[in-house]
């Protein structure tokens, strides 16, 4: 059995203050050149906010999908119904979330590996809503490491 390191960004949504510092720092740090701009539209984390219903949920950009889901469900939070897409992590053709404005390039959280850093959204989230964890996990020999 071999092991590999899995990185987790854990979200304790009850602690989120909705400040969107995470969006700012993510978009700035991944900009080209780095720190040349801020634009939440380019961030790999977006905070779903419904301030009238106390719902603040940071969503980290997940994998790209080239087709949208067929069946869509709804999600009840604090007695209010939200479309499932509200909390979905995919960069999906049905919406503009997690795609670069103008170029449409899909965005995915890389836990800041591409910029050789610890996860900056975690570091900048002083509310401790976001925390980072690296876990050694066993993997079966024959399974090729997933990207």
């Amino acid at each position: 059995m071999a092991t590999r390191k899995i990185k987790y960004i854990n979200i304790d949504a009850d602690k989120c203050s909705g400040c969107r510092l995470c969006e700012s720092i993510c978009s700035a740090s991944h900009a080209d050149p780095p720190y040349s701009l801020v634009n939440p539209g380019r961030s790999r984390i977006r905070v779903f906010r419904d301030e009238d219903n106390d719902v603040y949920i940071p969503v980290l950009a997940g994998p790209y999908t080239d087709v949208e889901c067929l069946g869509r469900n709804t999600v009840m939070v604090k007695g209010k119904e939200y479309g499932e897409c509200s909390f979905c992590r995919a960069s999906c053709p049905s919406r503009d979330l997690f795609r670069e404005p103008e170029t449409d390039i899909p965005l995915k959280c890389d836990t800041c590996e591409s910029i050789n850093s610890e996860p900056l959204c975690v570091k900048w989230c002083l509310s401790k809503c976001l925390t980072f964890e690296e876990v050694e996990e066993e993997v079966e020999e024959e399974t090729p490491a997933a990207a």
């Binding site: 203050s17 909705g18 400040c19 969107r20 510092l21």
Partner: peptide, 13 residues
């Protein structure tokens, strides 16, 4: 108190 809220980019909340 059910939550502490921050303005844009504010960690003081």
């Amino acid at each position: 108190r059910s939550r502490e809220i921050g303005c844009f980019n504010c960690a003081l909340r």
